[in-house]
């Protein structure tokens, strides 16, 4: 945690690449769509990583904030025809409110119990939003004709959100808050003895984390034009995948979630398209299977994730190329 320039040269190159990338794929809405999903997962992964990777509170229920964000954009539209675009802010705020309320319950729990508590809260929301048809239109979901046909503007919006989320985490981590998050993660009892109000700082971490998850949820509705409770509160497709994005990329690293998001989306697409149609069709059903194997591999051999164990990976690759010579 040295107090050098805010962004290193490498980081600026990454951000610049993100800026020009959609222009390279100007004529491929398909590629742009993938880029948009990658960015959305960067936001979700970064959000989870702040709470779990940096603060040690391993949430198994990030779908709760994602879903609340999405519904905050969708419900005023459904009932009052208010533009869902307001949701980009309101969804974040609403997710913070829910995050804070859930925090009252789940922050009384530690370790695996916290994980289960968050999982259960997201599941309760999923069921409730599916059942309360008068409010949410139930399992029929909420439909919205998206604003633009072209994908480029969506990309730049979610790209800006992704960069903002990463900047916010970076900012926090070089301040007192960041040191306190890490202290809580490493040893909560020691942290309290150092004068750290652990409850307060867990809440701060939760507020920022749930905000970004909520914004991502609102964006999802605006971009996709459809949500129902099974999609946005999904245990597997949202909560669990968010965790896996973090783990594969590297928990407790700034760029880990971004790397994890890229790997996850590309892998999924690679298999879904049956390796660009080169492989037999049955391969397309295997993306989740392969992803699961990847998770097992990473936990066993790269516990720090791709970013966290980058030195290790480099060494391994280096050794290989040396022996080949």
């Amino acid at each position: 945690m040295e107090n050098k320039k805010f962004f290193s040269k490498g980081e600026l190159i990454i951000i610049f690449t993100g800026l020009v990338l959609p222009l390279l794929f100007y004529f491929s809405p398909y590629a742009q769509g993938l880029l948009i999903f990658i960015m959305m997962w960067v936001v979700l992964g970064t959000s989870w990583n702040l709470l779990a990777g940096y603060t040690g509170q391993v949430s198994f229920g990030h779908a709760a904030y994602f879903g609340v964000g999405a519904y905050t954009a969708a419900l005023p539209f459904l009932h009052y025809k208010i533009s869902p675009w307001w949701g980009l802010i309101a969804g974040g705020i609403m997710a913070v409110v829910i995050g804070y309320l859930l925090g009252v319950v789940v922050f009384r729990l530690r370790g695996p119990y916290f994980a289960l508590g968050t999982l259960a809260s997201a599941e309760i929301l999923r069921i409730a939003f599916g059942e309360e048809e008068w409010l949410t239109n139930g399992h029929n979901g909420i439909l919205y004709i998206t604003t633009w046909v072209t994908k480029i503007p969506y990309y730049y919006i979610i790209f800006a959100i992704a960069v903002a989320s990463i900047v916010s985490v970076k900012l926090l981590m070089r301040r007192r808050e960041g040191y306190y998050f890490l202290s809580i993660r490493e040893d909560e009892d020691a942290a309290m003895a150092l004068g750290i109000n652990t409850k307060k700082y867990k809440n701060i971490s939760m507020i920022v984390s749930s905000f970004w998850a909520g914004v991502a949820g609102a964006f999802y509705f605006i971009y996709m034009g459809f949500i129902d409770s099974e999609t946005v509160f999904a245990l597997h497709n949202i909560s669990i995948i968010t965790i896996l994005v973090g783990i594969i990329g590297g928990v407790g690293t700034i760029w880990g979630p971004a790397v994890g998001a890229i790997i996850m989306v590309l892998l999924q697409e690679l298999f879904r398209s049956a390796i660009f149609g080169l492989a037999p069709q049955w391969v397309s059903g295997m993306h989740a299977f392969v992803f699961g194997l990847l998770v097992i591999f990473v936990i066993l051999y790269l516990p720090g994730g791709v970013v966290g164990d980058w030195e290790l990976i480099k060494k391994k690759l280096h050794l290989k190329s040396n022996t080949e010579k």
Binding site: M1, N3, L182, E186, A190, A191, L194, I196
Partner: peptide, 28 residues
């Protein structure tokens, strides 16, 4: 603590900095 509680994955200096933030508000 008799059974020591270091913040294991932080450097020694960062351990102490985390403690120092009790009275200090700035990084410097």
């Amino acid at each position: 603590f008799q059974v020591v509680k270091p913040l294991k994955r932080l450097s020694v200096e960062d351990n102490i900095m985390a403690a120092a933030f009790a009275r200090e508000t700035t990084f410097a």
